[in-house]
Design a protein around this nucleic acid. Structure first.
Length: 715
DNA sequence: GTAGGGTTAG
């Protein structure tokens, strides 16, 4: 992966294929930077240095083949004057790691340390009337535009036109006005007119038009400056046209223009969003080596990138860099770092970082608190969550609707029903944070997980009244809850409302319906649920019918099961199989249940079900439904019976791992398992040392197995 | 939204 570092950068900076020159620019800073250690951590296969050593020695005197010099070409004078080709090759050969830095010359810059200056506006006494006119123009219809244009209160001089252009929106209006100024021929078009127009186009995500304008600038010989390039690059990024962002960055270098720190951090973010971590680090380090002191925005870009990758070492690197460069994180940087800590699974460090932030005198905003609430919820840190909540209230920290909804999700994670109800009430009486579909989904999750079907249905009715649509997640929670409460008629009603509301039913939802079907005792209910499921997934229902058919052969079952599994989303395959086994057991089709468990194992849905060491054999049923777990236990006992019959060697200990289910709402697989082994009088007992494990000794198990084998068989 | 760069939800 990391072998791509030097090659990828070469490509990005458009080094002609025929040109094998390895620019010195690409080799220097890493070796001399403290981040080398960090690179070594993040590169598992090789570092940039080893990757460069895999390249053939490169001829630095070779002339570039392209007309417009690339960045590396621009830097050619440096390399050409400091080392002859021969010397350089000798260097490369004598040192497998080909990094070389000229000790006598300063490093060549990759960015301009001076930010581009903006021109100052002179005061325009007609500002009020011109802004009013711009507002009128913005609000005019397409067909009125020209007639409104004629009412322009002052002649479109350069300053007047710029003022209007700056106040126009949306982008269609800006573009119309921009084109109109061009036709007036009152003054020559300058870069700033293009920049202002492009900015408006960027709000409208109109990358293609921006690119047209940029090309027009090139052909009309109007200079593109750093503001033009950064606008083009960020627009391409917002439109997910990353290739275009990189392309324009390269073009800038080729024309001989150095990026300033704004353009530079914009392109860093492009590489970051592409997940090109090594490239980002390399660019960052070269910038620093050029004398650049990155600002908080840059660190925010880096932190976000490492957060997305869940890379804790990277997050530490960002913190360390800010410290060593003496850059104080601002609120955005803290927010990004907190989010990143959450994604890297470090709730404790997020907590200390938050305290550090507060101690530094910063006041958390909605985003800070949203990040923390999410982290504490996912980590199931109820105490910290409640402390945070208290502080939010006593300090009057800001709230918005996303924070409210995140807090509700946190309540769902922690099983805090009353607290959720309080928040929900707060939202209803608030001005700005009225409950939306996310809010109701969170509440449906909370009541649904707690098995409160009455409250869930109240929410459902309330949503209908408020005209808030049910989404697929809320629908799934509701159907699951109603299914568990055996309120099948309500379930069908909800299902129909969802269908009418255009909810797109996914495999998870189908799995949920299938599990409800597996719970149904009454065949009438079973039929109703399958009728719903048929609308979402007719093949699945056909397969259920096939299972029930006595005449269905194993071969047919196998083929059709394969098709069902193949068509299902990966994460729903095992749940589907679990539910199908449950359905079999519920309908006394035990033979089918065993066939399905076999097929599920055959198609890899139950990897790691069995584990064997010399001393212990174990069965891990944690990812199985109750029916599937019991089927697996029976299957296992059958196998052991054969072992006993054949007098084969057995380990001292047998164990079954059910898990103990720490979540407040989790339904105990352990309990069902316990009652089943009691029913079978099997010698498995819940282990006191190992939570969530049932254990049996060889002696007890063999005795039990023998007691079940008819004497004729033993004889 | 003062010609340009970074952060919030299954």
């Amino acid at each position: 992966m990391a072998a791509s570092l030097s090659t990828a950068l070469d490509v990005h900076f458009t080094i002609p294929k025929s040109d094998t020159k390895r620019p010195i620019f690409f080799t220097s800073p890493i070796r001399h930077n403290p981040t080398k250690k960090r690179l070594a951590i993040s590169c598992t296969s090789s570092t940039s240095e080893t990757s460069s050593s895999t390249k053939p020695p490169q001829n630095i005197s070779e002339s570039p083949s392209s007309k417009n010099p690339s960045l590396s070409d621009q830097l050619k004078p440096l390399s050409a004057t400091t080392l002859s080709t021969k010397d350089h090759q000798a260097q490369l050969l004598s040192r497998p790691k080909s990094t070389w830095v000229n000790p006598t010359r300063p490093k060549r810059s990759v960015l301009s340390l001076q930010r581009q200056k903006k021109s100052l506006y002179s005061y325009n006494p007609q500002i009020r009337e011109l802004k009013l006119f711009a507002k009128k123009l913005s609000g005019s219809g397409e067909d009125e535009f020209e007639s409104v244009l004629e009412t322009i209160p002052y002649p479109p001089t350069r300053e007047n036109a710029l003022l209007i252009l700056n106040s126009l929106r949306p982008w269609q209006k800006t573009l119309l006005f921009f084109n109109w100024i061009k036709t007036q021929n009152v003054f020559p078009m300058e870069t700033i007119f293009y920049n202002v127009t492009m900015k408006s186009l960027r709000y409208g995500l109109q990358f293609d038009i921006i690119e047209e304008l940029a090309n027009e600038m090139v052909s009309d010989e109007i200079q593109l400056d750093n503001i033009t390039y950064s606008t083009i690059i960020t627009c391409a990024k917002k439109c997910s046209r990353f290739d275009k962002a990189v392309e324009w960055f390269e073009r800038m270098y080729k024309t001989g223009l150095m990026p300033d720190e704004v353009t530079y951090s914009a392109i860093l973010d492009v590489y970051a969003k592409l997940g090109k971590v090594e490239e980002v680090l390399s660019l960052y380090e070269r910038g620093v080596a050029s004398g650049w002191k990155p600002d908080p925005i840059t660190f925010s870009v880096l932190a976000k990138m490492f957060g997305e990758a869940g890379d804790y070492d990277g997050i530490r690197y960002v913190l360390q860099e800010m410290k060593s460069l003496d850059v104080q994180p601002n609120l955005v940087v803290y927010n990004t770092l907190l989010e990143a800590m959450g994604k890297a699974g470090k709730p404790g460090l997020a907590r200390s970082l938050f305290e550090e932030m507060v101690d530094s005198g910063l006041t958390p905003n909605e985003k800070t608190l949203t990040a923390l609430a999410k982290i504490y919820g996912k980590a199931r840190w109820a105490k910290d969550a409640m402390d945070l909540w208290e502080r939010m209230k006593s300090n009057n920290w800001p709230m918005d609707f996303i924070l409210y909804n995140t807090l509700l999700n946190m309540c769902a994670d922690l099983g805090l029903v009353e607290e959720a109800e309080m928040l929900f009430k707060d939202m209803k009486i608030s001005e700005k944070c009225r409950p939306d579909s996310w809010t109701f989904t969170a509440m449906l999750n909370i009541y649904g997980s707690g098995g409160n079907a009455d409250k869930s249905m109240e929410l459902f009715e309330e949503m209908s009244k408020l005209g808030i649509g049910l989404n697929i997640m809320g629908c799934t929670c509701l159907v699951q809850c109603l299914g568990k409460a055996r309120r099948i008629d309500d379930l069908v009603r909800v299902f129909n409302v969802a269908i009418d509301g255009g909810v797109k039913l996914d495999d998870r939802f189908c799995g949920c319906l299938l599990s409800v079907a597996s719970l149904c005792d009454e065949s009438e209910d079973f039929t109703k649920v399958l009728a719903c499921l048929k609308q979402a997934n007719p093949k699945l229902v056909a397969f259920v019918k096939l299972i029930e058919g006595e005449e269905t052969s194993f071969e047919t079952l196998k083929e059709e099961f394969r098709a069902v599994v193949r068509d299902a989303a990966v994460e729903t395959r095992r749940p589907f199989c679990n539910c199908l086994i449950d359905i079999c057991r519920k309908r006394d089709l035990h033979g089918r249940a065993h066939e399905l468990l076999y097929l599920g194992t055959l198609y890899g849905l139950y990897p790691d079900l069995h584990h064997k060491t010399v001393k212990e054999w174990s069965l891990d049923v944690r990812s199985l439904s109750v029916g599937a777990a019991l089927t697996a236990l029976e299957e296992w006992m059958g196998t052991l019976t054969k072992f006993v019959q054949r007098d084969e060697e057995l380990p001292e200990l047998f164990s079954a791992h059910t898990g103990s289910g720490t979540h407040k709402f989790s339904q105990g697989l352990a309990n069902s398992f316990d009652s089943h082994v009691k029913k079978l009088a099997a010698p498995f007992r819940q282990s006191e040392e190992r939570a969530g494990h049932f254990v049996a000794t060889r002696e007890d198990l063999v005795t039990w197995v023998q007691s079940r084998i008819p004497s004729s068989v033993i004889a």
